[in-house]
Design a protein around this nucleic acid. Structure first.
Length: 719
DNA sequence: CGCTTTTGACCTGCGC
DNA sequence: GCGCAGGTCAAAAGCG
């Protein structure tokens, strides 16, 4: 091996490949060269490759930006790597051809080198595909140096042109890849919103039509179907975590029937139960595909499509990706659990390594089969900090009180997921991510991504000055002090303003663009008035903080929306006399595109005690309000006939999958136990809700804000 | 008695 | 293959 211009090259063979011919050689030196070349080729054959380390080869012509190994280490995109692979294969093929030619030429040299050495001419071979000049016996060339240099320059230029074209193509494909990712993200968001809407509608319909007689008929029909299926299979499994439409795919160990696991849920429509089974010969397990009534599956998930040839592939990819995204909320709380508006059932507790405090595991019980889980643990270093980690997305309508946390965590998780997809290892630089997403949030919240699970951390522990119940009045009029801690962050208004700028769906009424210095005014709500948004947001912040009638006005506006007087936040904001309320509606209404825009505001109001519990506002949510507990689930299962249980646990409580979990009469003590908001910290929870709402807006906004600039910069840097 | 919480066993993935 | 750690299940204990 030799060094040339500081780059590692493999003797003169590589040089020959690039058309760099050598000078005239004497007979002796040529003989030595041939001997050396043959040794090199023999060595190459023993190693099984001409140039075992691609970096040596690429190092001469392809600088670091096409270095595969370094790209992988830097988190290069898969698509880009594929492209590089293609390039590598492309040139490897040509190198192989050139090598064969050279081997043949060297053999020939052995016979004729002595007598014909002076007469030999290099025989350039032109690749039919690329036009690259592949010289086979350049060492014997007696062409002039001038000709050599001319040929070398031409080949260099040609190779560089090829490289430029390839690099351009890679960049084009990267750009297209990002566009597709963006489209996928949008489709996913739209699907989620549509799914929620569909569930609400179906539930409404089910409530109207679901009579007892109908249920009995339905169960009998299901029994018949199951009897038929039981003839085919000794036992079937219906995964409770797949209450959605289509198929539930479970994997059953051949040794024990209790050892099953869900492979995924197939989004296949149809109303006839079907079951198929096939053996996975590799691990001796039986794969069962169960197709149940589409009407019985509220959470039908078209994202999950099973490839029968590779049943694990897509489902596991999607599922693992979604499951791995976590949102960690750090709060200061003395209560065992923060109030997030959802109902949870504790299903386990475990000592985690490195922390003397146990970790409690909870499962969302607001709907049967909801995949959302969380675990709660106190910080080892600071016991006053409660760390709540959320995982998964709710598959049911949420009460307004739960929307603040849910929308925030969902937005944060989506942000992380959409970003991590573009990196090879799925992990972003924590500091970079935090700085990019929340540049203003150093004292409010921080976001970080960490291994092994991509985790977004919403750190609310810096609000140490936020008074708890005893100090924080239930009046927004007291908010200036607290809100000011946010508002004094000079960048916050800009961020929120950017949120308005980047969310173009809002079409609120135009108002005066002039912002008087005196009493704060509502923000400019039209998207064309981008320039003033930062200022108007700043004014809005002050308006919310200073207006004592904010809550009442906001509640009135929301009531008008719910009663149908106003179809959306925009019109409600336009008609609300209270400027701060109009601002809040406008901001919140745009904070969660595609979802229930009012929900965060309602949740905020509920938590503030301004309006009643959500059942007073929304009949659909009311039906899902009662939590399920483990024992109720267990007992419900015990009391139901076996055939019902075998079909699905979820149907045991009610023959309709849309029906809520059976309500229970709770004793006073139980009710007290079920009070999620701990005594004395309700106001703190309300404050957290407010922060979470703002965080949701910020995260959602910056997701769009940075969708091009941020992620493309990451790609460019690694690409 | 009905319900919740506890807790040991079990499962699964990962690193060595 | 083994051990470890995180996560889950479900029987049993505890509570009102």
């Amino acid at each position: 091996m030799e060094k040339a211009n500081g780059l590692a090259v493999e003797s003169d063979l590589s040089i020959g490949f690039f058309g760099i011919q050598q000078n005239k050689l004497t007979a002796n030196s040529f003989q030595r060269l041939i001997t050396r070349r043959k040794n090199a080729i023999d060595s190459e054959q023993m190693n099984g490759s001409y140039c075992s380390d691609k970096r040596m080869f690429w190092g001469t012509e392809f600088p670091a930006n096409l270095n595969r190994r370094e790209d992988a280490a830097a988190g290069k995109e898969v698509a880009a790597e594929d492209e590089v692979d293609r390039v590598v294969d492309f040139f490897s093929e040509h190198r192989k051809t050139a090598r064969d030619d050279r081997l043949a030429a060297v053999d020939e040299d052995d016979h004729h080198v002595m007598e014909n050495s002076h007469d030999h001419q290099s025989v350039p071979k032109t690749d039919p595909d690329t036009g690259l000049h592949l010289l086979t016996t350049n060492a014997r060339s007696d062409q002039s140096t001038v000709d050599d240099e001319f040929s070398s320059d031409a080949e260099d230029k040609r190779a560089k042109n090829e490289l430029t074209l390839l690099q351009t193509e890679i960049q084009t494909m990267n750009a297209e890849n990002q566009r597709l990712k963006g489209m996928l993200s949008q489709v996913s968001s739209s699907y989620t919103a549509l799914q929620m809407h569909l569930r609400a509608l179906m539930q409404k319909k089910q409530e109207a039509n679901n009579t007892k007689e109908h249920e009995v008929v339905q169960v009998e029909a299901q029994d018949k179907k199951h009897e038929q299926l039981d003839n085919i299979l000794p036992r079937q499994f219906v995964d409770s975590e797949c209450p959605n439409g289509g198929m539930a795919v479970t994997q059953e160990s051949s040794k024990t029937s209790s050892n099953k696991r869900t492979l995924g849920c197939l989004g296949l429509p149809g109303d006839i139960n079907e079951t198929a089974a096939f053996n996975n010969e590799k691990d001796g397990k039986v794969i069962r595909i169960e197709k149940s009534s589409g009407l019985e599956n509220p959470g039908w998930n078209p994202n999950k499509v099973l490839d029968l040839k590779n049943p694990n592939a897509m489902d596991q990819t999607t599922e693992s990706t979604m499951k791995k995204a976590r949102v960690l909320v750090r709060t200061r709380s003395e209560s065992p659990m923060i109030s997030d508006g959802c109902h949870w059932r504790k299903y386990g507790q475990k000592m985690a390594k490195g922390n003397p405090c146990p970790r409690a595991y909870y499962r969302c019980t607001m709907a049967v089969g909801c995949p959302v889980r969380k675990h709660v643990q106190r910080c080892a270093n600071d016991r006053s900090i409660l760390m709540t980690t959320y995982e998964g997305s709710h598959n049911h309508p949420l009460p307004p009180a739960a929307m603040a946390m849910a929308s925030t965590t969902a937005a944060a998780a989506n942000m992380l997921l959409s970003g991590s997809i573009s990196s090879a290892d799925g992990i972003m630089n924590p500091n970079f991510l935090a700085r990019t997403i929340l540049p203003c949030s150093s004292s409010m919240a921080t976001i970080s991504a960490s291994a092994p699970f991509p985790t977004v951390t919403l750190d609310l522990t810096h609000q140490q000055n936020v008074p708890y119940a005893s100090q924080l009045p239930y009046n927004f009029g007291s908010l200036p002090h607290n809100f000011g801690s946010l508002a004094h962050q000079s960048q916050l208004p800009q961020i929120l303003g950017q949120a308005l700028i980047n969310q173009s769906t809002f079409s609120g009424p135009q108002r005066s663009q002039e912002q008087p210095q005196g009493p704060p005014q509502p923000p400019q709500l039209h998207q064309s008035q981008h320039a003033s948004h930062a200022d108007t947001l700043s004014a809005a912040t002050a308006a919310i903080a200073s207006d004592p009638n904010f809550t009442a006005a906001l509640a009135a506006a929301i009531s008008s929306i719910l009663s149908g007087s106003h179809p959306n936040c925009a019109t409600a904001a336009a008609t609300t006399t209270n400027s701060a309320a109009a601002t809040a509606i406008a901001v919140m209404g745009r904070s969660a595109p595609g979802s229930s825009n009012l929900a965060p505001v309602i949740g905020l109001l509920v938590s503030r005690g301004a309006i009643g519990e959500p059942m007073d506002l929304h009949p659909t949510i009311n039906n899902l309000w009662q939590p399920e507990t483990q024992s109720s689930r267990t007992n419900r299962a015990r009391k139901k006939p076996l055939h019902v249980l075998e079909h699905s646990d979820q149907y045991a409580s009610d023959h309709s999958p849309w029906a809520p979990v059976r309500e229970r009469r709770l004793s006073g003590a139980t009710k007290r136990r079920n009070e999620w908001t701990p005594n004395g910290s309700a106001a703190a929870c309300a404050w957290n809700s407010l922060v979470l709402v703002l965080l949701g807006a910020i995260i959602t906004a910056t997701k769009f804000w940075n969708s091009e600039g941020f992620w493309s910069s990451v790609r460019l840097r690694t690409g």
